[in-house]
């Protein structure tokens, strides 16, 4: 009786710990996504575009470069889910949220820098993405996204 109990405990404790770590990770991710929704709503009045030229009837002053950068780490659970995907193929949803979070966070930070300078538009927005290697060769450690553009105070729009 005590033998089976000790075997159950021996197998169950690491599983429960893994489950707790997984749930904490998911909770952190959903709270980050909620914060992003909030921030995007707050900064939604700043006009963003990747166009190079301003519309002809717009007047712009106080132009300067603004940037936002975010680096999000890959966790083991995402890698595991992705490896399961590799068997059947298809969308790797776990990594899609990772890249999406990094990109949205980088854009929010760029817009915040523009807001702090009193700008109401960010033009010629460009987004650069790079990967970070994990502790072992070939393993994904995370993704970094940099968003940059020219912030300006625009009138006549």
């Amino acid at each position: 009786m005590s033998e089976t109990a000790s075997v159950l405990v021996g197998a169950g404790v690491p599983v429960i710990l893994l489950l707790i770590v997984y749930l904490i990770g998911r909770a952190a991710e959903s709270s980050h996504l909620a914060r992003l929704d909030n921030d995007e709503r707050e900064l939604a009045d700043i006009v963003m575009s990747d166009l190079k030229r301003l519309p002809d009837n717009w007047r712009a002053t106080d132009l300067h470069l603004v940037t936002g950068v975010a680096v999000i780490a890959t966790d083991y659970f995402k890698v595991f889910a992705a490896s399961l995907r590799n068997i059947v193929g298809g969308r790797v949803w776990s990594f899609e949220t990772l890249v999406s979070r990094a990109r949205r966070e980088a854009i929010v930070r760029m817009l915040r820098e523009a807001r702090d300078a009193g700008a109401n538009a960010v033009w010629t927005v460009r987004i650069e993405t790079a990967t970070i290697q994990g502790k072992r060769q070939g393993k994904s450690g995370g993704v970094e996204v940099m968003a940059y553009g020219t912030a300006m105070k625009v009138t006549g729009g």
Binding site: A28, A70, V71, I72, D75, Y76, I132, G134
Partner: peptide, 23 residues
Amino acid sequence: KHMGRDIAAGIKNLFGGELKGYT
């Protein structure tokens, strides 16, 4: 661009989230 022997980064690999030091 390598996480190396960073212990904090190792913990991040469990929970995920932003690598503030790297940012």
